[in-house]
Simulated scan of single mutants.
Amino acid sequence: MAIILKKKKVGGSNKNQTLPKNDLVKGHNETSEQSCVAPFIDKLSVVIEPPAHMVHDVYEVLLETFFDPSSAYKEAGIGAKKGYRAARRIALDSLENAKKWPLIQANYDKKHKSVERIRLEFVPVDLKHQGLAELNHALLEILEGGWAAVVQHGRVTRIDIAVDLQDVLMDSFLTLPPQAISRTQWASNGQLQTIALGKSKGNQTLVYDRGAKRNAMGQAWKGISGVRVERRLVGQSFPLLTLSELANPFSSLKLVENLPPPPDGETQAKAPWQWLMFCDSVQVRGLSNALSLLPKDRRQRYKKHLAAHGKLWWQPDQIWSHWPTVAKELLAA
């Protein structure tokens, strides 16, 4: 791996030409069977480890830029280092909220004057094309090639991928995970707001009401109502260049009707109360926990029945068909 340092630092301004607008997130109409939305990246963390013969040069130019008040690299605040020696926020003109500026961290050795590791974290969907252009310009102050150098040599350590489903209500469907996993849910005033599948320290799926989440954080919400399905992949280590090859993180998640009619065979002559009791259990315990209480054969039959009644607007394969374009546009920014 080779990282070529720029011989002369570029000036402090990080303005750039506005790139053509390209909306990666399409609208969704719950009544349309064929509507399909595109996924987007809600968070991306990339790590670069300079090769041994470059660590000194990287050290010289990076520290000069980090501590130059006229550069785009600003104080990141308490707690931003998170195990790194230095941390800065990269100021972007197109982002008024400084909390949304990309975070860059570095580990370096003063004694040997070397940089061992650089980490970049940002939210591509917030930056959009103009913000990515400004980020590239700022990175040119450190690396020749800017963002292209990060793409070529960086490794993804975390990526959050999301889908927004407009005009969908949290109580209008059930989440059917592929297997028994930890499930947590939050509600307010009797209205379901968030479902978390999996532990927060590992790979996790979040399904939540976008407006309710913002309101809970004390932020006014004027956006389009609907549900966000978000897959958080942590502990990753794959080349950023291979982003388009990422497997569909939504493929195993099923969003199903709440609740469908009983399965075949659960007739009046048999035991209709079993399905009714299961439905009541779902309302109290949630789908995953209610299923876990059933005998194995009934649990498998009910899961198969529920999966056959998926919501028509939730089509993971169609959604993921947009991913190569999303990845390509980010890598080429």
Results as ranks from 00 to 15, higher is better:
38 A>S: 13
188 S>I: 15
230 E>H: 05
153 H>N: 03
149 A>D: 01
208 Y>K: 06
36 C>G: 12
145 G>T: 07
183 R>S: 01
234 V>L: 09
12 G>H: 03
73 Y>P: 11
119 R>D: 02
105 Q>G: 08
53 H>Q: 14
332 A>M: 14
51 P>F: 02
303 K>Y: 01
212 A>L: 12
262 P>G: 05
16 N>Y: 15
321 S>F: 02
181 I>K: 10
126 D>W: 01
281 S>Y: 13
262 P>L: 03
21 K>V: 02
94 S>H: 10
210 R>D: 14
123 V>D: 05
269 A>I: 04
194 T>W: 00
19 L>P: 11
177 P>T: 05
300 Q>I: 15
177 P>S: 14
296 K>Y: 06
5 L>I: 13
101 W>G: 00
24 L>H: 15
184 T>R: 04
122 F>N: 08
325 T>L: 00
117 R>I: 12
143 L>K: 01
90 I>L: 05
127 L>K: 15
306 L>G: 07
100 K>T: 04
263 P>F: 07
95 L>P: 05
184 T>G: 01
254 K>H: 12
330 L>H: 08
259 L>M: 08
242 T>S: 09
127 L>I: 02
134 E>D: 04
3 I>D: 04
199 K>F: 09
295 P>D: 02
312 L>S: 07
151 V>I: 02
229 V>C: 00
94 S>I: 05
23 D>E: 11
154 G>H: 04
150 V>C: 10
317 D>A: 03
36 C>A: 04
199 K>G: 02
146 G>N: 08
161 I>S: 03
165 L>Y: 11
